[in-house]
Amino acid sequence: MPQRQRTNDSLSPELIKLLKIFGLISIGLVLLLSFFNTKRANNSGEDLSFRMTSSSRMYFLNVRVINYDRETRSDAGMLLFRHGKREVSKSNPTLDLVIILNNSKDEAYLYLEPVNVEWPLEIRASSGGTQEEFQLQNGNNSEFLRYVRQLEPWITNEAKFEIKQNATWVDLWSNPKEKEALKTILEDYFRLINKQG
């Protein structure tokens, strides 16, 4: 009768070494890839363009709000903030940038509020020999944000602005304090919604 060969039930040292190397590499890859998993897919169907975090809201309300005049709209459940250095006039046309906090939805919006002028608005910006005209319609939050994004490069470059009233171009945001206030509003708003200005 042929004799069976006995097999060793324990693993060879080479196989143990390979399993250890494979296990350490697997754990290392999982740890490494977990550092790059900061962006998650949004499958909720919600528009997160205007979402503010609790920390950004608290920073605005506790630190930045000192620069703003506050209006509570209890009928809409919103807080409106207008910069304290904006031009306030009873007759001259102007355009206020208003930060609106919708605390029930954890969202923040920018609103272009015409003062002594009616929608639709025509705005002209000129700087360094270049000029551009903007046609603004009263719209929704996304449209206002798009308008502000169009005006933003002109605001940061301290362009000259004019607004059309009754077929006449009138200076808009001409005071250096107003221009500084506009930059502050944009900075504060984009910090609120965690976006780059």
Rank of each mutant, 00 (worst) to 15 (best):
N103V: 15
R51N: 03
D106H: 10
P153L: 09
E71R: 15
R73I: 12
L79M: 15
G128N: 14
Q150R: 12
P120F: 08
N141Q: 12
L112V: 13
P93N: 02
L101T: 11
K160A: 02
Q137N: 08
F81K: 11
E122N: 03
L112S: 04
N116H: 07
T94W: 15
P153V: 12
A108N: 06
N67T: 11
E132C: 02
F134G: 00
R64W: 00
I99D: 05
Q137D: 05
K160Q: 08
S126Y: 02
S49Y: 01
S127M: 06
P120A: 11
G139W: 02
N102K: 12
E107T: 10
N141C: 04
N116F: 03
S91K: 12
V63Q: 08
S104P: 00
I100N: 03
I163L: 11
V98R: 07
P153R: 09
E71H: 14
I99W: 14
N102E: 11
K105R: 13
L79F: 12
D69A: 12
Q137C: 06
L61K: 04
E133G: 08
Y59C: 00
V115A: 05
R86K: 15
E87G: 03
E118Y: 13
E162G: 01
N92T: 15
S54Y: 02
P93K: 03
